[in-house]
Design a binder for these strands. Sequence first.
DNA 1: AGTATTTAGGAGCATATACTCCTAATTATT
DNA 2: AATAATTAGGAGTATATGCTCCTAAATACT
Lengths: 159, 159
Amino acid sequence: MAIEDCNCMSLRKAARRISNFYDAMLSPTGLRATQYSILALLNELGIVSINVLAERLDLDRTTTGKNMRPLAFAKLIKIRPSPTDGRSRVVQLTQHGAATLKAARPHWQKAQREFESDNGERLARNLRRTLSTLRVRAEPGKQGEAKTRLQHGGRLPMA
Amino acid sequence: MAIEDCNCMSLRKAARRISNFYDAMLSPTGLRATQYSILALLNELGIVSINVLAERLDLDRTTTGKNMRPLAFAKLIKIRPSPTDGRSRVVQLTQHGAATLKAARPHWQKAQREFESDNGERLARNLRRTLSTLRVRAEPGKQGEAKTRLQHGGRLPMA
DNA sequence: AGTATTTAGGAGCATATACTCCTAATTATT
DNA sequence: AATAATTAGGAGTATATGCTCCTAAATACT
């Protein structure tokens, strides 16, 4: 079995390629594909905690928090401590965020349409369904028996 | 059209999930999924330049260079200036790299087997085929008309 | 009530990814 | 041969991603 048949590699490659395309299509809006999807999700969900958002994004808790940074800095979202739970912080779109999302929507739709007309609407739908129902084992706490991760010290040893 | 139907998001999500799984399966070896695939590819290709490797990985040129760092630091690969072209640098597996790859191979195969028994060998094969033949437009040089990218200044504005 | 456990989420670290800009070396042009 | 254009690839910057460790707050337990 050759590395070309790696399921992980195939998915990563495809994700890179499509991300580049969507990023390029969205670039007139100043948003990345990831940022667009976060804003769109917030628009659907209203006010949510970081954890809930992370769950909906299928994204690590800490990653979700970090992804808030550029959005908050650009004042597209607002983060506040939860009034009901002192541990929690809640996120919501600002007016500016909602307007930016609205303006970006046609660009996203154009990307969707192009992708689907290039690959077939049917194939795209099937692919999305296949991907969302993939069974991937969680493998919790594998770190215990893990070898030390590779470390690097500064820059590439030239020559 | 809701954000749940975003082709880009679907692919990114699936790539994250499967990467976590393969990373966990490979963790006893100290390699990440990406690193494993680079070593495996180098094992197939022998001595190659960064650019050629990048092309085979469907990866940006500069990203490929950066991905060499931890591998080179761990002495799994060796990078030298090309003897025939002074601009170019060539990469190859070290003995240690080849041995590490060999030892990691069963873990990768186990990940492949588990994924394929959980989802069906046929589905996995079809999925890989679909992904590798996806038509994704290159959209070169879109940056010219791009708005300024989001910028952040340090850490999240707390509270 | 007081302590222990769980939960929310940031900080630090490391990798992965791409873009812009830059330098050096090669190749093409005149 | 001298200059121009191309090519190889690193440096810097910024986002995306996940893990470990840490703190504060809420909940469970005795």
